[in-house]
């Protein structure tokens, strides 16, 4: 629906905030890499890499896809799993 603003108008509004957020992410990644020790195989690091790749996809719905990337998948057999769990 309903946003009557042009793409260029939105881009102009969003440019500086997006620039600032990208710099924050860049600095965070640098901070992680400057720290000592291993971490390049850590699941959280790999998730971040996948999320960054998602941002570069040329298709709307990035926010939803990033959300799904950071989500446990839905198990439609959850009732069976709970029936046998002891929690």
């Amino acid at each position: 629906m309903i946003s009557e603003r042009t793409r260029l108008a939105v881009l102009e509004e969003e440019f500086l905030p997006v620039r600032a957020k990208i710099l924050e992410i860049a600095a965070s990644l640098d901070r992680i890499q400057r720290a000592e020790g291993e971490g390049s195989r850590d699941p959280n690091w790999l998730q971040i890499q996948s999320a960054l790749e998602t941002l570069l996809e040329d298709q709307a719905g990035r926010a939803e896809r990033v959300q799904m990337l950071f989500s446990r998948p839905y198990n439609d057999q959850w009732r069976e799993t709970h029936k046998h769990s002891t929690s």
């Binding site: 959300q67 446990r72 998948p73 839905y74 198990n75 439609d76 959850w78």
Partner: peptide, 14 residues
């Protein structure tokens, strides 16, 4: 919250 939201929401709707 967070990584549990999707599965939990679907369970609640079920």
């Amino acid at each position: 919250h967070l990584e549990d939201k999707y599965q939990g929401t679907r369970m609640i709707l079920d």
